[in-house]
Design a protein around this nucleic acid. Sequence first.
DNA 1: TCCTCACATCGATAAATATCAATGCGATGA
DNA 2: TCATCGCATTGATATTTATCGATGTGAGGA
Lengths: 98, 98
Amino acid sequence: MDAPDIVALCKALGDPVRFAVVDVLARHGETCACELLERFDVTQPTLSHHMKILCASGLVDVRREGKWSHYSLNRSTLGAFLQFLERQMPGGLSKGPD
Amino acid sequence: MDAPDIVALCKALGDPVRFAVVDVLARHGETCACELLERFDVTQPTLSHHMKILCASGLVDVRREGKWSHYSLNRSTLGAFLQFLERQMPGGLSKGPD
DNA sequence: TCCTCACATCGATAAATATCAATGCGATGA
DNA sequence: TCATCGCATTGATATTTATCGATGTGAGGA
């Protein structure tokens, strides 16, 4: 996990649709592509395009099951991402309570 | 600090030049535009363009002094950014030990 | 085997963006 | 006042990217 990887992760999160997708995966857990398609106002090819970028960044995993694709957040990658940023450029993160 | 702000921050960090600039500011502290210009292989207008985006995102502050512009990392914004991500989509960050 | 479903890929297009040369502008000094 | 310096802005251009319609593909069902 070096700087170019982090830049790619930032770019992946730097789109409103993709950010919202990641948000859904974080709250909702593993989610089928067809359900994501219902939630967002994009066509199926567009969603597929975004999911490909998210998977390539390592932030999202995919599990194929029959005709369906199930996407889930890769929390390990997310953790490494946040750790990198926090270490590289400490910004007074929640070192406080709770 | 809501989702669109976070997306804008991600987009700001999702460019190799801007990410490297932020990295320099994090290590080096407040830095003059002329010094940044020496460190990176871009023209002066391009650097100015990137700095404008970084400032607009809130990640970077600028202090004008005579003919010079001094840029610095806004660690408060960075902290809020990381906190938002960590809270929104916990990824196994250092919440454990401590 | 043929059809349908869920999704990926292709091809095209419009919008966004990164970049540079040229120029504008305030501050400083001669 | 004029010239120069540091930086921002403008205008133009090439690249990237987000998006959609059309099509391909593999899995199941009739």
